[in-house]
């Protein structure tokens, strides 16, 4: 995974609460066995609406999605963050994210930034009024800078470390191989196996 440190670019405002992963990546696109080809079908059903923001040419270069609370609720489908990333988003800013979605984003180097609701609303207003407004996210400094101000965000230090250094979580875990083996040696013999 490529390290994630500083992200600059343009915002795409999509102010709505509880956008679920069925909207981000509708089920008809979950049948692939590959990790690619999801960018062109992100928000596929909503793209029928000519007024939908991703159909607005002024936001075609946007790489930071600014959206409402509880973004990514519902299904665990990782196809949702794959689609957002492959479309061109490097980061998503929202007041809050659903748990599984947030984890899935982190595993793919798609940065999720949680700001206070009034700060997100300020960014939405800025991007709505001026599609060319720049935004700069600094992960090491945990800040979001724009004409709307400089906002600080919190992020758990483990996720930050993994992102900043672009680490492979499985490789990290395999460094604990001995601890896992020790744990396994103490599991009760009655624990079920699936192939018996």
């Amino acid at each position: 995974m490529d390290p994630v440190t500083r992200i600059s670019g343009l915002m795409v405002p999509l102010w709505r609460a509880d956008i679920d992963t069925d909207q981000i990546m509708p089920k008809q696109h979950l049948k692939k066995v590959e990790r690619t080809g999801f960018g062109e079908v992100v928000f596929d059903d909503w793209r029928d609406d000519p007024d939908f923001v991703l159909n607005d040419e002024r936001y075609a270069q946007g790489n930071v999605l600014v959206t409402g609370p509880n973004f990514g609720s519902g299904s665990s489908r990782e196809h949702a963050p794959w689609g957002l990333q492959q479309y061109g988003f490097d980061a998503i800013i929202a007041p809050s994210f659903a748990d599984i979605f947030k984890t899935n984003c982190a595993k793919n180097g798609l940065l999720t930034v949680e700001l206070a609701q009034d700060e997100v609303e300020a960014l939405v207003s800025l991007a709505t009024d001026d599609p060319s407004a720049q935004v700069r996210i600094d992960l090491p400094e945990q800040s979001v800078e724009s004409a709307a101000g400089v906002f600080h965000f919190d992020i758990d230090q483990h996720t930050k470390h993994m992102l900043v250094h672009g680490l492979d979580p499985i490789a990290l875990t395999l460094q604990h191989r001995e601890a896992i083996t020790t744990y396994e040696a103490h599991r009760p013999a009655r624990m079920p196996v699936t192939n018996a």
Binding site: T103, N104, T173, H176
Partner: peptide, 18 residues
């Protein structure tokens, strides 16, 4: 609890999750 595909791979490889 539910997990995404990256964590599915993690569990397949390590039988653990962070």
């Amino acid at each position: 609890f539910g997990i995404g595909t990256s964590e599915v791979e993690h569990v397949l490889a390590t039988q653990t999750l962070w």
